[in-house]
Each structure stands twice: as C-alpha cells, then as structure tokens.
Design a protein around this nucleic acid. Structure first.
Lengths: 343, 343
DNA sequence: CTGTTAGCGCATTCAA
DNA sequence: TTGAATGCGCTAACAG
C-alpha cells in the first residue's frame, strides 16, 4: 500500500541509508549529486512520503508545536450584553484570530503542524509525551491559569499567550494593556477632554488584564497632570459621574462600552455629542456599537505569531523572554472634540 | 530523564509486555487484577508516560484527527462593510466556533489531539504521512475547494465541512442553507409579508451556499403560492423594489443585511417599521446591526462536532454520509408584522 | 496469567 | 561516497 524507504532504495539501486541521507535534506551528508538526483526522482515518482512515526521515534523530535487553547469553550449563540456570556463573546472574537496567527507563523517557519490539545480529563502533561517539541498556551484572560504552574518543569519549551504572570522558565507574549488604555486616554486628552472616567472593574476585578488597563488609565492621566477617578463599574454611578462633569468614558472592554452606551442612551445622553466613549478589544461588531465604537485594537493574530516565533527561538536554545505587543487605536465615531459635536 | 516502560517493569517486578498490556487499557488482555493494580501504581508514582512515537510506529495509528482550516486566513482589523473584507469577517466569526466544536467533540470521543495543518507550500497529502487517522477539511464557503479533489484516494477517511459538493468517498457535513432561508421567509410570511425580496448574489454569485440560500427563498415563496423576485444585489435596485411594494428583505448574509440597512437608512426608510429585514449567519455583532438583526443562526460548532463524529464513525468502518444541520431563526428587532410597526 | 521474541520504519553510526 | 548493522520505545504474537 504505502511506499517505504526500502522500495525507493531498490528502485533507485541504492541502499535505504542513502535514500534517508538524500531526503533528510541535510547538506552535511556526502552523497554524489547524481545519485541524490536519481533518488529524489524515484522517490517522487513512487509518491514516497517518509513515515513520521518512525522518524519521530528515531530523531526524538516531531517539528510539531502543541497548542493549548484554554480560552476555547462552548459557543452557543448568546447575547453580547448578557453579562455571563462575556467570556464566550470575547473568545469567539479572538480564537479565530489566534488560530490564524498561529497558522501563518507556522507556515512561515515551516512548522509542519500544530497539535491542538482538546482539554478535558486529560492532564496537560500527558500532552508532553513526545507529541510536540514545544507548547503554546493561550490563557483565558478572565480566569486564572493553573495550567501554567503545572508546566514549570516541562520537558519542552513553553510559551504563554495573554498573560504576563507566567512562572519562571516560561516565555510570555501579551498585549501591552497599560499602553493600550494610555493610547485611549491620550486620544481623549487630545480632543480636549480632561474629566475622563474609567468604566470597568479594573484592579478590583482580580483580572490581570483589567488591572493593567486601569493602571494605564491612571498613569496617562497623572502624566498629564490630571486626577484619575476611581474605577466605575455601575451604570447609575457612571451617569452620576457624567452629571458631575465627566465628558469622556474609557471602558475596560468593548462589551463594557456597549453596556455604558446603553445606560447613557436610556438616560438621553448622546454619544459623542454629550459624552465621548472609547472601548478596548475591537471585538467583532465593534463597528455597530454606539454607532461605531472608537476602541483599542488588540493584535491577537500578531501575538499568536510572536508566540510561535518565541517558541521556535526557545527550540534553538534561546532563553525565554517576555514580549509585549503594542495595541493601537481604531478611530470610529464614538469620540469627538470637547464642545465640538460631530454630525 | 524520561521514564520508559522497561523501568516501570523492573520497578513493578514484571516484564515490559505486562506493563504494556495493563496500560493499553484494553480489557481483553488477561492480567491478574492485583498485578495490574501494582503496575498502575508504580507507573503513576514514576510519572511514566508512554512515548507516542514508539506507540504510533508499532500500532500504525495515532488516535489523532487532522484538521485543515481552509477558511483560516489573515485577520487584520477591517471594516465589516468594506466589501473585500467580507470573507475575513465571516472567517473570524466562525473559526473560533469551529475550533470550539472540534475540541468539544474530541474531548467527548477521547480523541487525544487535533492536528492542524498550517497550509502553505506543503501539499495536503504530505499531511497524510501517518500523522493522523482521519482528516477533517473545513472548506472556505466563498472559494472553491480544490483541496478535496486531491483527497479522493486518501489513505485515511476524509470528512468535509461546509460544502455538499465533495467527491465520492468523502463524508460531508454542512448547514442546510436551503432550509435556512426557508425559515426566514416563513417567518416573514407569518408576519403578513407577501412581497419579499432576496438581497444578494444568489446563484449568480457562483458560491454554493448562496445559490442554496436563494433556492430556499424561491421554494418557500412558491410553496406559499407567491412569486419570488429575481435576486437583487444592488442598493439602488433594492430601494426601487421597496418603492414598488416590497415590504420585507431576506438578505443572503448578515453583512449583506448591514449593507441593505445602510442603504435603506440613508433613504429614510425605517427598519422594521417600513421594511422588515432578515439576515443569515448570525455573525458576531449581529445584535448591533439594524438595531438588532433578526437572522438565521448557523450551528457552526455543532457542525464541527458532527464532523468529528462522522470521522470517528468512518474510522469504525462506517460508510461516508452526508449530514445536514438545521439552522434556526434568531429573532431580534429587525422584523415586524406588516402594518403593525413596533416601538 | 506472564515472559520472551521480534519487529514497526527510519536515521545514524561505522566500516568498507 | 556508499552500505550493513543497530536500535529508538513500544506492542503483538507466541510460548511457557
């Protein structure tokens, strides 16, 4: 059925060892150019594909990278504003981008395959049974990441995505959230706003990303000589703050921005005429929130690609590093210069 | 470094073969219960994990399923209404759901891993080098799927997702698009609409899904004794049709619905007061389109899960089948009873 | 019930 | 420059 190396050898009039040397692609084997050419032709004609299992067993490496999508979860259709469905909505937005970024980088770096761990009862460490040469863990930003702690002494390099709190020895790639809210705040400052609120749980939420986003908000305002307000995570209080003079709202997430918009809308406030609103995430559908939400885009695909590159670097013996990717502002229609309403 | 079967055998006072028999999990090997228990304990204590490469070489199977995500592509931030970005937007919406569905089914069926082919120069058939026991191909609905034709005589079972035009021998799982637009049309009929337009390229687009969706529209209307209109794929003509008496629009996709909404909005038409609008896809953000788009939800995750199950069935020797999943209507706010405007 | 033997298909010595 | 021998770690067949 399947062609084996021995058959190629016979057909080419050489030994299996020679075929192996030719097809390994390594230049440091001394093979006559003419012989090599003949072997290659025969192998192609016969449709020979080296058996990976045997190759893996012999070389002790697969070239494959493992991917743990901690964020992949159920995906029923759910309301974006339902509160509980927040993580699903965000997951659905980013998982595609993550897979795309991974695939792209894998293609570039000639990684033959990505092995995705389906989760479940199986211990992640069981996943380190020679199946992959390195492991990429896409952490769930909203949960802790207990997975990583079990991976400190993994037999292969490990890189974590979407966290900056990985144990020693584990590489890290994350979006620079602090910088992200900084961009948002500076955008609002440039539009003349000075009383800017942060809408979301922030540090109090216990979520690493949200704490960083709030910190970025505070730092940017303080750097401008202005006084940050305590984080607001309640529609009523937000309206109160606007009543008290807040002219711009920096939301922790796009979904938060959507909720804020609804609260403001119901109170008869118009965005951006009465209040400017900036989100964070650039989720799918952000262009439909608040008439087109100005928000901070997270380069999820780039992050995933950077993760693959970091992992491949580790495979080459490089020490694990921390890489932070700069998000960028997507300007749409939910912000306006203070006192100069659009439309 | 790593514990091997021999060491477990010595520590447990048995032979390697016995350890293998115990840990294979197969009940048809006669092993003394007491011995088995001891072996299991020793293996656990030693942290023994069977080497997959060796196991694969010996058993000639991996338990792993291959996944080709033809739809995974670049994922820059792009406007949902930019025309060219349509496929990206849809991809981003569904890839996460697909991965989630695959993972979930894999978990259930104890498939230890999904091997994702990153694409690129590598021939897909190179992917069939013993790496996986079966192949799942998620076709790009907007492109052809040349991949499948190269997979007719694959050495492992193949199941195609998101097409019904696979070559013989390849299993198929798709959403029932015809049924989908049927649901949408019947929803509009129930609301009293009789002059319903189909907005999109339909059969003329050359896209399999779109042709089916238009067919569903036609069939549903004809079944009700009404006259379907030719597909409209131009804002101006759509407005003309509405002017001529059309009271409801069945859009080929949610993005098409968004475009239709914009055209109608600019013309001063209100949805759903003046016109009812139904989409198709339930993409992320659909709740923000047209004030909450009523649309046809595609069970992408279920489809992926069904694909995994079909593949596992094929592994068990079952003949390849065609499975069609019923989409369902998500009622939001873009449709209303004829002559009885909401709000 | 358990152990011994013999490969799975390939890449790597080493000798020729 | 090439080929024969060897074994990666495991499991299947067989013998005990």
């Amino acid at each position: 059925m399947k062609v084996r190396i021995k058959e190629v050898a016979v057909a080419a009039g050489v030994s299996a060892a020679t075929v192996s040397k030719v097809l390994s692609g390594r230049a440091d084997y001394p093979v006559h150019a003419q012989t090599a050419e003949r072997v290659r032709r025969v192998a192609r004609d016969l449709g020979y594909v080296p058996d990976v299992a045997a190759r893996h067993l012999r070389t002790r490496q697969t070239g494959q990278l493992g991917v743990v999508l901690e964020a992949v979860g159920p995906s029923e259709p759910d309301s974006l504003l339902g509160g509980l469905s927040v993580s699903h909505a965000v997951r659905r937005t980013f998982d595609g981008a993550i897979m795309a970024g991974l695939s792209e980088a894998a293609r570039e770096l000639c990684v033959p395959a990505l092995v995705v761990y389906p989760g479940g009862d199986l211990d992640v460490r069981t996943f380190l049974d020679g199946r992959v040469d390195g492991l990429l863990v896409s952490c769930d930003p909203l949960r802790g990441h207990g997975l990583l702690s079990g991976l400190t002494h993994a037999p292969v390099p490990v890189v974590a995505l979407w966290t900056q709190r990985a144990p020693a020895g584990i590489g890290v790639v994350d979006v620079d959230h602090t910088h992200g809210t900084g961009i948002a705040v500076r955008h609002l400052l440039a539009l003349g706003h000075e009383r800017i609120a942060f809408y979301g749980g922030g540090a109090g939420s216990g979520v690493e990303h949200f704490a960083r986003r709030e910190a970025g908000y505070r730092q940017a305002l303080e750097h401008a000589g202005l006084m940050p307000l305590p984080a607001i995570h309640d529609g009523g209080r937000l309206l109160q703050a606007i009543h008290d003079g807040v002219t711009a709202v920096c939301a922790e997430t796009d979904l938060g921005a959507a909720a804020a918009f609804h609260a403001m809308h119901r109170a008869g406030l118009h965005v951006p005429t009465d209040v400017s609103l900036v989100g964070f995430d650039d989720i799918q559908g952000a262009e439909y929130i608040a008439g087109g939400l100005t928000t901070v885009y997270q380069p999820a695909a780039e992050m995933a690609a950077a993760g693959v590159r970091a992992l491949v670097a580790s495979l080459d013996g490089k020490a694990p590093r921390t890489t932070l990717l700069k998000p960028r502002l997507i300007e749409r229609h939910s912000t306006a210069a203070l006192g100069v309403p659009r439309r």
